[in-house]
């Protein structure tokens, strides 16, 4: 039962046909993160204009959870203000730590399909990999200033 909740169609869909996979020309921020225990890795790139994420791409390799999380995250954030990314990231992290309230938060949209990951503590870091990269990228934008 829990497994079905984990491996929902929408997650497999994003795993097999990820959105925003690729590389950007002259990104304003670029972050490469690895999960040394399992070898998963992600490179996340942002184009930011006037505080808004104009474009976002990711590349790398990983399990269905990390890839689906990255795909849904980028889909949800494209065209949104950086400030919204921060808030969403905080909410998503709450959901990963088992918050029932976050798991029904409409703001999270499709990302709620990942709520089941919270029941598999060793897989939470897979779901958070892209979000950790996002946090680093946002930091880069704020220190370097967007283009």
């Amino acid at each position: 039962m829990q497994l079905e909740a984990l491996y929902q169609q929408v997650i497999l869909q994003h795993y097999r046909h990820p959105h925003n996979r690729g590389v950007l020309d002259a990104p304003d921020a670029e972050v490469h993160l690895r999960n040394p225990t399992c070898g998963d890795e992600i490179t996340l790139q942002l184009h930011v204009r006037d505080g808004t994420i104009e474009d976002v791409r990711f590349s790398g390799q990983g399990c269905s959870i990390s890839q689906a999380s990255a795909s849904m995250m980028t889909q949800r954030l494209k065209g949104k203000p950086l400030a919204e990314a921060d808030a969403l990231s905080a909410r998503f992290t709450e959901m990963m730590h088992g918050s029932a309230e976050a798991a029904v938060d409409r703001n999270l949209g499709h990302l709620r399909a990942l709520a089941g990951v919270a029941r598999f503590p060793v897989r939470v870091r897979c779901a958070l990999l892209a979000w950790n990269a996002l946090g680093e990228a946002a930091k880069q934008v704020r220190t370097n200033g967007p283009g």
Binding site: Q2, G39, G62, C63, I65, F120, R123
Partner: peptide, 27 residues
């Protein structure tokens, strides 16, 4: 197939079957 080894290990664990998934310290 295209099932990532971590996903395999999670599914097997839910069935009570303990295997290892990863690079096995041989990157």
């Amino acid at each position: 197939a295209d099932i990532h080894p971590h996903d395999l290990a999670t599914i097997l664990d839910a069935e009570g079957v303990a295997i290892r998934a990863g690079h096995h310290c041989t990157q």
